[in-house]
Amino acid sequence: MNWLISLITPVGLASGAFIMVVAMTLLGALIAVAARNIFHNVLGLALCLIGVAGLFLYLNSPFVALMEILIYVGAICIAICFAIMLSAPMYLPLPPRHPLKILGALAGAGLVFAFLALLTKKTTWAAASVRSDDWSITTIGHYLLTDYVLIFEVISLLLVVAMLGAVVTARGGRGSS
């Protein structure tokens, strides 16, 4: 009985929520990579991104969490769904998985993982409470338009590249490919 009550203390609830969110992220990522039905891949990705949003929420940044859902789940995943509508019909047999490609993907993802892990390990993190005690929308807005304005603008280059890519891909039009 006591351990049950200890589960609904703030700390117990917080750890429960954390485990749930991490499980969601990992499960979603696994589905996104492993499922053979391409529509399930997108749904897995959506689940994974909602899990990441949950992590942001856990870190007391509801604004970033909601933006994650609004942009990644609401816009990116839906855009991917549109792309799926243009892909090969699902009743056609899928080509078998190529072992070399799996190895390549594993190596690439592993490199990124190792890089990020090293980066996390080497950085000396300052606790959020030391750096500032105000993490409201106003603060984030100030940061985006002062300290991080260059990064903010450079990221928008990515969108231009994506748009150019779409124009180039679509230029041929129907039937000319």
């Binding site: 604004f63 909601l66 609004l70 609401g74 995943c77 839906i78």
Partner: peptide
């Protein structure tokens, strides 16, 4: 972030 919460989760309806 009240407004954002409603608008963000509305995206799930589409999905």
């Amino acid at each position: 972030v009240g407004v954002l919460l409603i608008l963000a989760f509305a995206a799930l309806t589409v999905l």
